[in-house]
Design a protein around this nucleic acid. Sequence first.
DNA 1: TAAATTTACGTAACCAGTTACGTAAATGTG
DNA 2: CACATTTACGTAACTGGTTACGTAAATTTA
Lengths: 161, 161
Amino acid sequence: MSEDFLLEMGYSGLTGRLKRLSDAFMYQTRDLYREYDEDIEPNWHMIFLLLQKNETMTVTALAEALQLSHPAIVKLINKMKKKGYIDSVVDAEDKRKYDLMLSQKAKQKLPKFQKYWEAGEKALQELLNHNKQLLEQLEQLEAKMAETDFRTRMDKLLVNE
Amino acid sequence: MSEDFLLEMGYSGLTGRLKRLSDAFMYQTRDLYREYDEDIEPNWHMIFLLLQKNETMTVTALAEALQLSHPAIVKLINKMKKKGYIDSVVDAEDKRKYDLMLSQKAKQKLPKFQKYWEAGEKALQELLNHNKQLLEQLEQLEAKMAETDFRTRMDKLLVNE
DNA sequence: TAAATTTACGTAACCAGTTACGTAAATGTG
DNA sequence: CACATTTACGTAACTGGTTACGTAAATTTA
């Protein structure tokens, strides 16, 4: 038996391999943060960047930008608040909304965090042989999924069989 | 603001995009199974295939073949047992081990399941434009990660800075 | 302007993984 | 052969997502 069954399985193994890879990146990044005693999580990265770029954003705006569900953002934000990285105020014009922004602590720590993020980016570039082929392939796949998603394609294939 | 921040972020967005993609495949496949009233989960696919190929396997053997932790396999297997797809007997020679195998129900349902899996494979081929470039790119990435993982590469880059 | 609808956010319950720890069986060793 | 070590599996607690449902504020509409 081979050492990696998913690799053997060609197309059918793809989804599992994507999962394994994304998990590996996440766990390894988290390990590194812990080793360096930083109380941040890997998936906060993009939240930090978005709030750095946009000053204030709402839960919904973050969810759209990252294409996650709003409860996912709520969970993230609550943890970041608990650690003191996020401040929020009720929106003046729409009391349903919270305007989220980086705290002083976050702004102060950002330069340090940036070093980790840069290291991550460089490590990724190494892993991808400094070319964007994988990125481009993924972009094509994402575009195709946006046209007609996996579910719908399976459905059609099952019906037309 | 762009509609997809991760896409904008190049290398840094990659890990999030892998996560999104693998989640999308999983959720959409699960939806399809539910629509067709099949009480199976997406991640059982490879377990079914492995047990079809190998007759009996232990928890550890499955974990190695799929490169998952053993508790992950235990959880999977318990659910599959609960649904009656897996039988297990204590190994005759080593009482710590369970020999896992497909139940009669599983064997009988396999041809039906195979149709879903084939549809999934075809849908994936469509999404990949019937070429294996993405698979190959991923394989290279996996090989590089096996050489020196992401964590170690980040570490080096941080130290040498 | 009153009522219906939509939007923003929160909560609960679920699924998929992980690491850390514990126990019992098998194996290695003095 | 007794004891120490390793291996196989199980359980608990955690992270990261999801969908489904509820509530309050804003907006639309009759």
